[in-house]
Design a protein around this nucleic acid. Sequence first.
DNA 1: TATGGTTGTAACCGAAAGAGTTACATCAAT
DNA 2: ATTGATGTAACTCTTTCGGTTACAACCATA
Lengths: 143, 143
Amino acid sequence: MQFSSRFTIATHILLCIAMFEDSQKVTSNFLAGSINVNPVIIRNILGQLSAAGLVEIKAGVGGAYLARPADKITLLDIFKAVEREEALFHFHENPNPQCPVGRTIHKVMDGKIDTIQAAMENEMKETTLAEVFADTRKIIDEE
Amino acid sequence: MQFSSRFTIATHILLCIAMFEDSQKVTSNFLAGSINVNPVIIRNILGQLSAAGLVEIKAGVGGAYLARPADKITLLDIFKAVEREEALFHFHENPNPQCPVGRTIHKVMDGKIDTIQAAMENEMKETTLAEVFADTRKIIDEE
DNA sequence: TATGGTTGTAACCGAAAGAGTTACATCAAT
DNA sequence: ATTGATGTAACTCTTTCGGTTACAACCATA
């Protein structure tokens, strides 16, 4: 299993907006060109980012803008905006209650799974879009 | 996206083996009864656990046994045994190299993604089968 | 107010993977 | 040889992702 590419595409979108929103209108077609996917995919992800309050989109006239400063957007915000809301692990639903292991497995494992998921999310919370943007800017300036 | 239920099923399998291997022959049919899925699914996962060196299976006569002590098996061992080997995040493949963001996004994000994945795996490494087994035993004894 | 560039979405398609099942060859102790 | 297991191939069904076309709705502005 893998997370969908929506997370990296969404990050790419936000970086492009941060980089270009002051100098030009950032449309789904413009983003599609940079990311190299179909504009509809961009519009769908952009819609998710908008619903999550990370970007503002000008309907009709076009263009996407950050809805709050880049240092107030973490990778976890991006991740939660584009990944379906659900538990990280799919638990087998119907263990046999007549087996001692079967009727206790959920009690024992649910907490472990939560801890594992929390470890991942805490790590994502550590990095902001502003940091990623600074890294990007640095590499570009060194070229 | 979600991890498949193979991880929780595999953990369930190993707990059953730890619980019952001394008192009875633990076959795929027995396990299928406790987990409440088709025996073929058990055999496939058991095969993965065997390939990873976590269990030994007696062909012909039948029965599965832990290949090493439960305190030497971590949740990460189980996870890696049953999940396809690959990166956690699916990165969009072909960002446009003519866009400054497009040509730097991999350099910037690859490391972040590795760190996130490592955070999850480190957390999984913290818990052993022996601990999960002890928790299970404790709940059963309190019933 | 008509135009034109955008966004928002519905409706598809194909590929891949998970979950489940049946069927059967193979194995090894008795 | 029999018997109860395992190993595995083959198939179905469902869901999701990634991709695409098509088109309605939107709105600044000419």
